[in-house]
Design a protein around this nucleic acid. Sequence first.
DNA 1: GATGACGCCTCGGAACACGAGGTATGTAGC
DNA 2: GCTACATACCTCGTGTTCCGAGGCGTCATC
Lengths: 112, 112
Amino acid sequence: MELTQEMIKGTVVPVMLKLLTERAMYGYELIRVVNERTHNALQWKEGTLYPWLHRLEADGLIRGEWDEAANGRQRKYYRITRKGAAALETSVHEWVALSSAVNAILLAPSMA
Amino acid sequence: MELTQEMIKGTVVPVMLKLLTERAMYGYELIRVVNERTHNALQWKEGTLYPWLHRLEADGLIRGEWDEAANGRQRKYYRITRKGAAALETSVHEWVALSSAVNAILLAPSMA
DNA sequence: GATGACGCCTCGGAACACGAGGTATGTAGC
DNA sequence: GCTACATACCTCGTGTTCCGAGGCGTCATC
């Protein structure tokens, strides 16, 4: 019963989309950036990330493109599409509605 | 790809535990109360709730007891245990850490 | 030439949600 | 008394998902 992991699940997609609005990134980079920015509150794993990238690309929310980095490595850079930006907006609203509803319950003062 | 449902998952357990600190409740009641209090932002279903009640009872976080309501119906009232209260505190902390991390990303101003 | 970081990926076991179904009792209307 | 619906409990099967473990190739460091 891993509570934390369960909580994280639903946030993967909006967070991914949001980060890709800032700049195009490749998978490995997304993992590093998220773990840094959240101080490991969200611990993204490759086994979760890559399938999602493929799914979102199949759905047309992001588009990937191979490119050669300065260090000579091949990387697949993803950038968000117009459709993805719309989906992001929707899911941010959902997140706000959900998290404030949950906060209203969880952070209410306990009865004596 | 139901984004909202995914988000909700991780919040079920802490919300359940929190509500049971307010007063003992039975399953059917929990569903009604949650849907009311969150204006259907969290839409709890029986198929999700009952298995969780049994799981949490098996783990000793809550304890259920049959009782007869004023209207003559048999209801199973659950109340939180000491162990459950400790688990609640932990998972509330996790929720706060997670939701503020996600908010920091999602609500950041977009680049132009 | 070996080790480890980088960078992509897939597979399979385990866990989970929830629609659909079941049972039983109370109330309301006729 | 009968029917229909809300209450109240529950389970099962299908479909979905996570993620640890593993594989593959490249580059830098020693």
